[in-house]
Design a binder for these strands. Structure first.
Lengths: 230, 230
DNA sequence: GCAAAAGTGTTTCAGGTACACCCATGA
DNA sequence: TCATGGGTGTACCTGAAACACTTTTGC
């Protein structure tokens, strides 16, 4: 038995909701599922779960991410707490939202049937249950601010990627076109990308060289007080 | 009776902790109190309280802020949720932290005795209970990022303030000295400050003109797609 | 040979940074 | 009159933005 210092206080259900973002077809996608239980059964929902007594909220989020993607060690950051009294139509539930950035190619597609899950383009987002639409909007806002100063976008791509695809990712995040030459100049001048010898020929005849993110070099730069900025 | 959809789920205590920031003597200060109950009775603590069943987490934070400062309508933003299992030595408590920016002159000093509260300079911060030191550090980080792109710093000053005091505020937030001419040029060129006729003679013989923040002009600029940036 | 995407440099402009002196006033 | 903080302008330099053509290769 743990000591009970705080008597006569209300207790609450705490959920974690995960805004799982992926990138394909030049657009950001979010993982959503048809809800399999009441209330709002059948509605589009983000991936969530309840926080258990013995686990931290970060652990709960990690568990949910693993469960619904089949990937572990996913990049995630806390988005914030959502605590309107009536936000969940079932009972009062305070939700801690986390956004996660995943390489969609690693996604375990067998989970699609199991949870009736889909990757939905954020430009064709349907109405989601509760305040989940707001969570997605807040994620995009946060992503725009964070991706400008930290190289988190790479989590949406595979280990190796081409510069055109990287550019297209940033264009999707900021919803604006970027000049090809300026983009390359800037990203390459940071000296955090490693050029490989192979080419990706899937989207052009000529093929585009693969690059990979060099975390060591990046850490070194940060150490020196320099900053990533795009 | 509300319907009970979520059976057999763990419930939790939820607290709100408020990092209440003020500005005086060229330094940021945070409001802390000697804790009046166990556990950690007598330790330095941020201002907090538990979330009640019928109130949103924002409302709970507003209530706590009002209670411990005597000021209502304080500027506040959510900092984030802190959910380590053992973070509170009493019981498992998930805390939603909010930072608040107040004009210390409006502070109801009678509350000092009532709660044994003090304004403590962030450069001489003592050890606080639980994870409260981390909350303060996170607040300063967030403040540095937010104050660069939104005019939230004004909440730390009175309705009217001098340019030297405004500069000193930004120097305190960023912990670096700023060139006087460049600072004035930049802030005045935004055209969001109104120069008044009176001077503040409290810190110099010559006196410094008072200015006030013009929210209407600011909103207008934002409308036009322009951005505050310092 | 042609369509389609990859790759490459230079010029211009705005904004950031560095920098030093005069002004007003109370004591 | 002098000490103290308030107020002002310019030159330089860096980094952002605009901009068009050549290369490769599968069909």
């Amino acid at each position: 038995m743990t000591a009970s210092f705080y008597k006569n206080r209300d207790t609450h259900l705490i959920a974690v909701d995960c805004i799982i973002m992926g990138f394909k077809d030049n657009d950001l996608h979010v993982l959503a599922a048809k809800r399999q239980f009441e209330p709002m059964k059948g509605g589009w929902s983000l991936m969530g779960g309840f926080v258990n007594q013995g686990e931290s909220i970060n652990e709960a989020a990690g568990r949910v991410l693993d469960e619904f993607t089949g990937i572990d060690g996913i990049f995630m950051e806390q988005l914030g707490a959502y605590g309107e009294v009536e936000r969940d139509l079932g009972e009062r539930v305070v939700s801690i939202a986390y956004y996660a950035l995943v390489d969609m190619d690693k996604f375990d597609t067998s989970l699609v049937e199991k949870y009736d899950a889909r990757w939905i383009s954020i430009s064709h987002l349907p109405e989601l249950i509760f305040d989940h639409n707001k969570m997605v909007r807040d994620t995009i806002n946060t992503l725009q601010r964070r991706a400008a100063v930290k190289p988190i976008g790479f989590n949406l791509l595979g280990d190796q990627f081409t510069l055109p695809s990287l550019q297209s990712l940033y264009e999707a995040i900021y919803q604006e076109t970027i000049d090809k030459r300026n983009f390359r100049k800037k990203i390459l001048s940071m000296d955090i990308l490693e050029k490989l010898d192979e080419k990706d020929k899937s989207s052009s005849k000529r093929g585009a060289f693969y690059y990979q993110f060099n975390k060591d070099k990046y850490d070194q730069l940060i150490q020196q007080g320099l900053h990533f900025s795009l």
